[in-house]
């Protein structure tokens, strides 16, 4: 990884893109039947919780500028690769949901993995540079989505009471709390220049802002039907129209799929940089093939076993990873202080 060619802004961009995908492409068993107000409150709680746990770690890593440990790095890579598998399965499910013509899952997974393999071999710098292009495209379509629906906003549709109490616990651990993509920031920021804690806070807050805008917009357009939608953003895109442009959903879906593949690429690219130092030199160039083969096996395994959502497992693993860094760094700091 080149240390002088990646800025903390770019790291924030790739992290934001990796996290925002799930707001638009919902996992198949995502929490529903909650009002926008409940979702917003839980999202805020989740964001605060994430910041409280992660910010000290970001600051610690900033001070040390060093890697944590071999086991932890490989653990982080494993989480990212599993998250990539989860995202591939999710993307395949989403494409099946939005597409009329069914495409064999094998073909779709193969296409995604081919792009991921290419992107990951180009390195984190290329991915970081591409992030701005992807982000600009996403922002344009997001504003288009809101603009296309603004004529249908009804403030009376907003529910002001907390509904769906039975799903509160699920919502609290399911909206924005500890996505495994936090690891992308923690790993990539080591080689980036700039104020890292500030960038991380901004990333989480922007993510929260996007989430709130989407949740409120969906409810203002769909009313109580919003909580019944499995893919609310897609419904919003399908309904929205701007002048003579009535089928903007095609644009939105394409962009969200682009984001999803980009996220998977980022996960694998970062995992690659984590694993590479521990691989013998002669195998370094071939490592990507190994990773792609492993991802293919895992994807088809999950597909055959109908494992469609590993979010809870990944979130727990991320919390363990972040806390482990914190503990290790603190112990080392204490040792250094004694010496």
């Amino acid at each position: 990884m080149r240390t002088d060619k990646i800025s903390v802004k770019q790291v924030a961009f790739i992290t934001y893109i990796a996290m925002i995908v799930e707001v638009f492409i919902k996992p198949s068993q995502a929490v529903s039947s909650l009002s926008a107000k409940s979702m917003v409150v839980f999202a805020i709680l989740d964001a605060v919780f994430t910041l409280l746990i992660c910010l000290p770690v970001v600051k610690l890593l900033d001070k040390w500028q060093t890697t944590t440990s071999c086991a932890l790095e490989l653990f982080a890579a494993a989480i990212l690769l599993l998250a990539a598998v989860d995202s591939i399965i999710q993307t395949e499910g989403y494409y099946r949901f939005v597409s009329d013509k069914k495409m064999p899952a094998v073909l779709l997974i193969a296409i995604v993995l081919a792009i991921v393999a290419y992107g990951a071999t180009q390195g984190i710098e290329a991915v970081a540079r591409a992030s701005l292009v992807v982000l600009v495209i996403f922002c344009c379509t997001f504003f288009l989505l809101i603009a296309a629906n603004i004529s249908q906003f009804k403030i009376t549709n907003l529910q002001f009471e907390f509904t769906g109490r039975e799903n509160w616990a699920k919502a609290l651990f399911g909206s924005l709390s500890f996505p495994p993509e936090i690891i992308i920031f923690l790993v990539a920021q080591r080689v980036a220049k700039g104020e890292k804690a500030k960038a991380f806070s901004k990333t989480i807050l922007t993510l929260l802002g996007t989430y709130i805008v989407l949740a409120v917009s969906t409810e203002m357009v769909l009313g109580s039907f919003a909580s019944l939608q499995s893919q609310p953003a897609h419904t919003l895109a399908r309904i929205g129209s701007l002048s003579v442009f009535t089928r903007l959903d095609a644009v939105h879906v394409s962009v969200w799929l682009l984001l999803a593949i980009f996220k998977i690429t980022t996960n694998v690219a970062v995992a690659l940089t984590l694993i590479k130092p521990y691989v013998p030199p002669k195998y370094k160039d071939k490592l990507i093939y190994g990773l792609i083969a492993a991802l293919s096996v895992l994807c088809f395994g999950c597909y055959m076993c109908h494992i469609t959502n590993m979010k809870t497992l990944l979130r727990c693993a991320t919390v363990i990873f972040v806390l482990s860094i914190y503990v290790i760094k603190k112990v080392r700091a204490n040792k250094d202080a004694k010496v």
């Binding site: 180009q122 540079r129 394409s254 980009f262 690429t265």
Partner: peptide, 28 residues
């Protein structure tokens, strides 16, 4: 492949352009 083919190739193109360096300066 259809629309997903366009999306995948589009991302490939973005990554390809962004990976090029022209004498040490990013091509983009």
């Amino acid at each position: 492949i259809g629309p997903i083919g366009i999306v995948a190739l589009g991302l490939f193109l973005i990554l390809n352009i962004c990976s090029i360096e022209s004498f040490g300066v990013p091509y983009t």
